[in-house]
Design a protein around this nucleic acid. Sequence first.
DNA 1: CGGCTTTGACCCGCGC
DNA 2: GCGCGGGTCAAAGCCG
Length: 315
Amino acid sequence: MKERLNDLETRLSRIEDKVMSSTSVMGKTNERQFMDSGQPSYQTTNQSYNNNNNNRSHVDAAAASAEHPFKNNDGIVLHDARGNSVTTVTFSSSNMVAPEATMRKPRVSVRTRSNSHPINDGCQWRKYGQKKAKGNPCPRSYYRCTMVKACPVRKQVQRCADDQTVVITTYEGNHNHPLPTTALSMASMTSAAASNLLSDSTPSTMANYEIPNPNFIPPTTTTTLTPSLSSMATISASVPFPTVMLDLTHSPANQSRFSGSQMSSDLVEPPPRVAGRPVMDPIVFANTLAAFTSAVNNCDGNSSDKNDKSSSSNS
DNA sequence: CGGCTTTGACCCGCGC
DNA sequence: GCGCGGGTCAAAGCCG
């Protein structure tokens, strides 16, 4: 245990060094983020894309730099409501490592089991690309949120190479529009949890640490929650890039740590219902994700997404 | 006709 | 400098 902890700390130190040595790149990233959010480049229809080839690379650079630097993760373990799955949430918080990292947008990854349908998270998405990733025969799909124009939220959907019944959905950014109020309570709870996690993160405990999938980016540090939260979540912090990971593929005999039937894991097949019991409302799920990402930003002192003015309203 | 998906091309970052 | 891989664009086509 101690050796592992030392190893993790060593890795963290290396990452910190790397981050600190790339200050100029970070500054560039910040500028690009500003350009990205300051320009209504992303519209909900193809006809609305106003960029010509000259400024396209401009925007591409912004998107690439601002949204894809997430290479490390932290972890939480949530226990869902249905008793046949455990939700593993992985958190990465930039403020745990280096101030520069707070410039990055949060990312939320969700692992679910699905035979056919993608996650129904209550939001409207428009597919804007598909790409085959190396080492995975299944293509990765790219979606934008189309609930409002210029919503910066994007998601990637990809099936796991090892188990193609597992769908990995990754969300990036905060919604810049209000989400349905029906999910605010859950969003508030998750936001509070995230805030708690982020404010109390120390690389000192491994007690509740759990890696849902070894293929996922390994965390470098972990954190135990307050008593009320520790039963359902564990944080592992690693690198500068805020990432939340929800693993809904497990099937333990745990009962819900959440009240009622709100927090369940079958988000794959709409309408989600197992054994006659309603599972998580898609909207609740969407707000949960939004809350997590907002919380990550808020705990960073809002430095990671200053351009997303309305993100805090979502949580 | 508007919105969505498909898909090849393009751009950029990163590793060698 | 070059090649590779990931992410995005945007034209074309499909669908309700």
